[in-house]
């Protein structure tokens, strides 16, 4: 059966590394945003560190290590994200996350797919995925700008630190709300083919695209190609 490319190697690599960065950001950021509930995480950072610096406590040593790891992951993201953004901006006209129809129709198709378990009339991405994509873009931008201010505090005024702290929290909670939904939907059996495309092959079977992504299939046919980003 013919396969249609859904994600190229660079997109899949970016998605995979974004997961790695997110795991580090969450594990090291949670003790900072909600110390009373997540201080226990600091033990894991502190135990190896305590071997080098036995006079520290899990709170001081663990938090210091968590903050260093948080910043190292941020440096990694700062290297990776602009490369990804530059490459994707070039193809902006072909993005599949632009609106197709109104939100009412989008929600109706989502209900059909996820509650009646019948294929919805989706583009490459459904309404929920498009909202998630835009929220991820906005939240990533917020986190990068506010994170840079918090990382290079000496270059900014305390007033800027305060607003950066505020928006860093806002960005964090956007991720906290959308990620459980995204992870659950990715793991749901309804979306097994999409999961395989993102993590294994990068492609979707042609029949599946015809039945589950008819709007996208129409675009592919009109362009006469088998690959759309």
């Amino acid at each position: 059966m013919r396969e249609i490319q859904a994600f190229n190697r660079f997109q899949r690599s970016m998605h995979l590394h974004y997961i790695h960065f997110m795991v580090i950001f969450f594990l090291t950021g949670l003790p900072q945003v909600a110390p009373h509930h997540f201080r226990w995480l600091l033990y894991f950072f502190w135990v190896p560190f305590a071997w080098f610096s036995p006079q520290t406590t899990y709170l001081s040593g663990g938090m210091k290590v968590a903050m260093v790891l948080h910043r190292l992951a941020a440096v990694g993201l700062l290297i990776y994200a602009p490369l990804f953004a530059l490459r994707e901006l070039k193809n902006m006209g072909r993005w599949q996350i632009w609106p197709e129809g109104g939100p009412g129709a989008g929600i109706a198709e989502l209900i059909k797919h996820y509650l009646s378990f019948q294929p919805g009339r989706f583009g490459k991405y459904n309404f929920g995925q498009k909202c998630l994509a835009w929220l991820t873009i906005v939240a990533t931008g917020i986190m990068i700008v506010s994170g840079c201010i918090l990382m290079f505090k000496d270059a900014f005024s305390p007033s800027a630190w305060r607003w950066a702290r505020f928006f860093h929290d806002v960005g964090f909670f956007i991720f906290l709300v959308i990620l459980p939904i995204h992870i659950y939907m990715a793991l749901h059996p309804l979306n097994r083919k999409g999961f395989r495309a993102m993590f294994e092959t990068g492609t979707l079977p042609e029949d599946y695209v015809k039945t589950h992504h008819p709007l996208w299939w129409e675009k592919i046919k009109s362009r006469g190609g088998g690959s759309m980003s």
Partner: peptide, 30 residues
């Protein structure tokens, strides 16, 4: 901005709870 963090965090945790409840609900529905 710092005092407003409390409101942001409260709203954030409530929305997270709603999203987690939605996910669990859909799992059992499925």
């Amino acid at each position: 901005p710092i005092e407003a963090l409390d409101a942001v965090r409260t709203i954030g945790w409530v929305l997270f709870g709603a999203s987690a409840a939605g996910v669990i609900g859909h799992f059992f529905y499925s």
